[in-house]
Each structure stands twice: as structure tokens, then as C-alpha cells.
């Protein structure tokens, strides 16, 4: 939940034990003292020590590491390993972190704020293959709020019959509703049906 993410680091940055009042912007010395969640997507050379080398500039520049997704088995065409790192930092520090990463010679493929804060799984069914599944997925990817993290296809009757696909989508914090709406719009156009979870009920 974005609430807890926004709340916890505030204490980490400004909260010494005696500070009981609300966050004092001056305590952090910056214009924007509230840290937010950032995701950077890096490409690492497949050599020992590379991951550590990539994490150090984040930690050294005031980033609070949240998660590291090391796609060990999934190499890029150039033989590099994609790594996704989530961390919290103020906007000002985030810029410094990206600069520091690049200064270390690390390839930063993507750097954004709260890129993948929430996940949502849904199932599409209909004539998925006939309606060009890869086009469907690209268009979902192209919508502003969503990234397709994982796809599982089931076409037990063959590719010309009705098939189903389970999609794991990543969305920015608070934007899962938009993500589902984007999928529904594309699905409707292609006469596909969407089985989505209930918003705000259970994951």
C-alpha cells in the first residue's frame, strides 16, 4: 500500500527518537523531504560483484532499498542481466542516485517514480490468438499506467478456438483501476472478456 510506504521512510529520514511532532521540512535540509518509491531497471554484466557495485551508489546516496529483482535466467540480447531495484528516496536524492549509477558505468535502462508499486492479476478469454495476442499485450504495455509482468496462455482446443491468458500486470501505486480499465477497453474492441478481481476487496 502506498500509505505505508509513504509513512515509514518519513520516520527513517527525519525521526530521531525525540521528534514527536509532524515532519519538519528543515530537518531534512531539502525542498521535498518526503521520500517516494522509485524503480530503476539496470542491465548488469554477468560477472561477480556487479550487483553489489550497482547497489552501493543507491545506498551511499541516501536511497532506502526496498526490493531487488534479479532476473538471473533472463539475459538481454547483449548477454546482460536485467535487474530491477525498488528503493525510497526524496526526488532530489533520486536524481543523485541515477547520476551516481551512470558515473559507475552501470547501464540504467529505466528510472521512474513508483513505476511498479502494485500488482494485479486478471484472466482474458476469447479468440486470443486470432485477435493477435502480442498486439493485445503491446497495447496494454503502451497504456500509461501498466506494464505486463507475466503471461500464461492456455489454449487447450488449439489456437483457433477460445483460449485464455492469465496476465500479471504491474501498475503505479493507486492506478490498478486505470490498468484494468485499459485492459477492458482493448478487450472490448477485440471481443475478448476480462475476469478481473474485485477492486479493493482482496488481492
Amino acid at each position: 500500500m502506498s500509505d505505508s510506504r509513504d509513512g515509514a521512510p518519513e520516520e527513517a529520514v527525519t525521526g530521531d527518537a525525540t521528534d514527536e511532532g509532524p515532519t519538519d521540512p528543515a530537518a531534512d535540509g531539502g525542498h521535498d523531504p518526503t521520500p517516494s518509491t522509485h524503480t530503476v531497471r539496470l542491465e548488469l554484466v554477468d560477472e561477480p560483484g556487479q550487483l553489489l557495485a550497482a547497489l552501493q551508489p543507491i545506498a551511499n546516496n541516501g536511497g532506502n532499498l526496498l526490493s531487488i529483482y534479479h532476473e538471473r535466467g533472463n539475459k538481454t540480447p547483449r548477454g546482460r542481466i536485467p535487474v530491477e531495484v525498488d528503493f525510497e528516496a526524496t526526488t532530489e536524492r533520486f536524481e543523485g542516485i541515477v547520476e551516481a549509477l551512470r558515473a559507475e558505468g552501470i547501464t540504467v535502462m529505466q528510472a521512474g517514480t513508483e513505476r511498479y508499486a502494485e500488482e494485479i492479476t486478471l484472466v482474458l478469454f476469447g479468440h486470443l490468438i486470432d485477435t493477435d495476442l502480442s498486439d493485445t499485450l503491446s497495447r496494454i504495455e503502451a497504456s500509461a499506467s501498466t506494464s505486463v509482468a507475466d503471461v500464461s496462455l492456455a489454449a487447450p482446443q488449439g489456437t483457433e478456438e477460445v483460449s485464455s491468458a492469465r496476465l500479471r500486470l504491474e501498475a503505479r501505486s493507486g492506478e490498478t483501476g486505470e490498468a484494468v480499465a485499459a485492459v477492458r477497453e482493448i478487450a472490448e474492441e477485440k471481443d475478448l472478456r476480462v475476469v478481473a478481481p474485485l477492486a479493493g476487496v482482496e488481492p
Binding site: T121, V123, F125, S152, A154, P156, S163, R166, R193, L198
Partner: peptide
């Protein structure tokens, strides 16, 4: 209103693989 008449078995299988199932839910 959407019903369940066209829901193929594969939707339930994919849901089950992910620890989920499908129910006709009204809200």
C-alpha cells in the same frame, strides 16, 4: 451484467495455478 455461459474451463485452470478461482460476483 455478464454471465458465466462462455467461461471456458481454461480460465478456471489458469486461475487455480495462481491460487485463485472464479465466482459470479454481484456488487
Amino acid at each position: 451484467v455478464e454471465g458465466i455461459r462462455d467461461v471456458p474451463g481454461s480460465v478456471l485452470r489458469l486461475a487455480a495455478e495462481d491460487g485463485r478461482t472464479v465466482r459470479l460476483i454481484g456488487e
